[in-house]
Amino acid sequence: MIFVSVFILSVLIIFHFRFAKELFDSEITEHVQRKIKSDLSEEAFCIVENLIDVDRIRYRSDKELALEQIQGKASELYEEYEIKVAEELQKSGSSYKAFGYVVLKGGNP
């Protein structure tokens, strides 16, 4: 019986530390996200500018092509943002999720 209790308590304390760590990590994540967003704001602004320019294109086929290009740029930018956030988090050692994310995205873990 004592072994069962010890096992249950060990599992419980591991989950305690995990959730508490994630709760404390959330603020660090937000700070990193804000920092990366401000770093990438210029590129994001360019995308918005391009979107406004698309409205001025008269022909439908040209418009669709331009929109596709912008969509591609936007996805690339978002991917860059996520990888940068993950790398920053990994550097500070605050999130194990970041590590997995960088590996999945084919970055340098």
């Binding site: 419980l12 989950f15 709760l23």
Partner: peptide, 17 residues
């Protein structure tokens, strides 16, 4: 006693998170 109270603490932390 110890398992139940630790479990309640864990539920509270999980709910907060």
């Amino acid at each position: 006693w110890y398992i139940i109270f630790t479990l309640i603490d864990l539920i509270a932390i999980y709910a907060l998170f």
